[in-house]
């Protein structure tokens, strides 16, 4: 039984069937850990993030890391070429990934990436939007919701004025960006379901 890890945060979707489940997880973990560390470093630089309690910083990062990674790695999903680039730099076609078991999540990732790229955000806008994405993550584990909400409001206000300044003739850009937040939440839910369904046999 061949197994596949259809996630661009791994080096390759092919899994060596001779390896133990534990070593497969270990290798996968080693491949996505640098990206997660970058998300944490990014979070530390968000003004106000370090003022949240340690518990709330961890909770937001736990809930929001996947959503941040989706935004940061949107360009790995090339809707024109219909390919996904994995960490090794190798591209895999949608058709190939489908035969490995990729389903609705892959379609939704392409759809999201294409719409986000179409907004042509500057690096500064993208960074501020990513900060908004992180502080807008699921709040179920948050202790001090008021502090997180205040931080979210400040960041959204800053994003709004930046986007309006840069795109004065495209008033819809800011609204389209905010509408990406529920899209990301739904991608996160689909991804969680896939993770929970993924079984590694020892």
């Amino acid at each position: 039984n061949r197994m596949h890890l259809v996630c661009p945060m791994s080096m390759s979707p092919y899994v060596d069937p001779r390896k133990s489940g534990h070593s497969i997880w270990l290798e996968f973990s080693m491949s996505f850990t640098p990206a997660v560390r970058e998300v944490v470093e990014f979070a530390k630089r968000i003004p106000g993030f370090r003022d949240l309690s340690q518990h709330d910083q961890v909770s937001l990062l736990k809930a929001g890391t996947f959503e941040v990674l989706v935004v940061r790695f949107a360009s790995l999903f090339d809707a024109k070429e219909r390919t996904v680039t994995f960490l090794s730099g190798k591209k895999y076609s949608v058709e190939a990934l489908r035969t490995m078991g990729a389903g609705d999540l892959l379609n939704s990732m392409f759809d999201f990436s294409q719409k986000l790229m179409a907004l042509n955000l500057t690096e500064e806008e993208m960074s501020l939007f990513t900060a908004v994405v992180l502080v807008s993550a699921d709040r179920s584990g948050i202790e001090n919701v008021n502090s997180v909400e205040a931080l979210q409001e400040t960041l959204i206000r800053a994003l709004r004025s930046l986007v309006l300044k840069n795109h004065p003739n495209e008033a819809a850009t800011f609204t389209k960006l905010l509408l990406k937040l529920p899209d990301l939440r739904s991608l996160n839910n689909m991804h969680s379901e896939q993770l929970l369904a993924f079984k590694v046999h020892p």
């Binding site: 370090r50 736990k62 929970l196």
Partner: peptide
């Protein structure tokens, strides 16, 4: 495992990456 983040060991990676931050704050 009912929590996908724990399943991936995400919390551990996050805590370790944040650690320097908390040490900075204590100094």
């Amino acid at each position: 495992v009912s929590d996908p983040a724990s399943n991936l060991g995400l919390e551990d990676i996050i805590r370790k990456a944040l650690m320097g931050n908390f040490e900075d704050k204590q100094e």
